[in-house]
């Protein structure tokens, strides 16, 4: 049997299709992006090698607004980590206690996660619509006309409105991950604490949260990386506007690549985004030393 299992030809037949596919679709394009980031090219012109010129441009805020885009994506990342995840954690802690309607709440919170961001974006465009949208109507009904706004059409509120939709769509995702992690803690542990007279808050702080720390780390990583490469929702909601107030690196990259045909500069942005994601993943792994417990 071991002879059959170490037959080189068989192994090749099994591994090669996936290997070729993966290399052609992911690895080679990344390498090619790396190469393109060092040249100046519009797809038709002669390719001119410019070294790190494209990256220097990015750091010197060219195209104008790139720095703002990076700032916006950082802002979304910080908000996601410090608003979205605590909110998800609270929801997960509360519904995992075995309250009535546990399954109902879990399902309802999770539904937006599985719906296409395109649909979600279009829906919220209608909700935020100043004249016929639900939001301004509700404010008027509550007598809060002075809070009415043009939401996504105003540079002051557009980014905050976008963030709200991100939270709305993904709070259920993080909630589910944390919830399933809490559910895997043995009941006896929590019951023992209860017998000893610990309150719910104490149990959460000293038992549940430390035990699910590895999953919290996963959520933080997903929220952070997800914010750094966010594209779909912003593309649907604002395309980076108004007046570039919701621009993020990916929307700028999309425009530079596909409208302006500046392939070198756009590829430098692609590489920038990969490196950003790598650095943050490593930082979280290093800085967030979650001990794993066995039970």
């Amino acid at each position: 049997m071991n002879r059959v299992l170490s037959n080189k030809k068989t192994i090749l037949i099994f591994v090669l299709p996936a290997f070729v596919f993966f290399s052609l679709i992911i690895i080679l394009p990344i390498l090619y992006s790396g190469y393109l980031s060092t040249i100046e090219w519009n797809g038709y012109s002669e390719k001119i090698f410019v070294g790190l010129e494209n990256f220097k441009n990015l750091f010197a805020d060219f195209p104008k607004g790139f720095t703002l885009g990076v700032k916006n994506s950082f802002l979304l990342a910080i908000l996601s980590v410090f608003v979205q995840i605590p909110l998800s954690l609270i929801l997960a802690l509360v519904i995992s206690k075995g309250i009535k309607g546990e399954g109902f709440f879990r399902t309802v919170y999770f539904i937006p996660v599985i719906i296409s961001t395109t649909v979600i974006g279009q829906l919220w465009l209608k909700i935020y619509q100043p004249k016929y949208g639900v939001l301004n109507y509700l404010l008027a009904q509550l007598g809060l006309e002075n809070l009415q706004n043009s939401w996504l059409a105003s540079a002051e509120t557009a980014l905050a409105c976008t963030f709200f939709v991100i939270v709305w769509q993904y709070v259920g995702y993080h909630m589910l991950l944390l919830y399933s992690s809490i559910k895997s803690i043995p009941k006896s542990l929590l019951e023992a604490a209860k017998v000893d007279g610990a309150t719910n808050t104490q149990i959460a702080r000293h038992i549940t949260i430390p035990l699910i720390a590895p999953m919290i780390k996963v959520c933080v990583t997903f929220a952070l990386i997800g914010s750094l490469k966010t594209f779909d929702l912003i593309y649907v909601l604002t395309k980076g506007g108004p007046i570039h107030s919701t621009e993020v690196p990916t929307t700028i990259m999309y425009r530079v690549l596909l409208t302006e045909n500046n392939y070198g500069l756009g590829s430098a942005m692609a590489i920038f985004i990969i490196i950003e994601c790598l650095i943050f993943t490593i930082l979280i792994q290093k800085g967030f030393k979650a001990e794993s417990y066995t039970y």
Partner: peptide, 8 residues
Amino acid sequence: PMQATLLP
């Protein structure tokens, strides 16, 4: 990230 492979 998928975005990084868009142009190639």
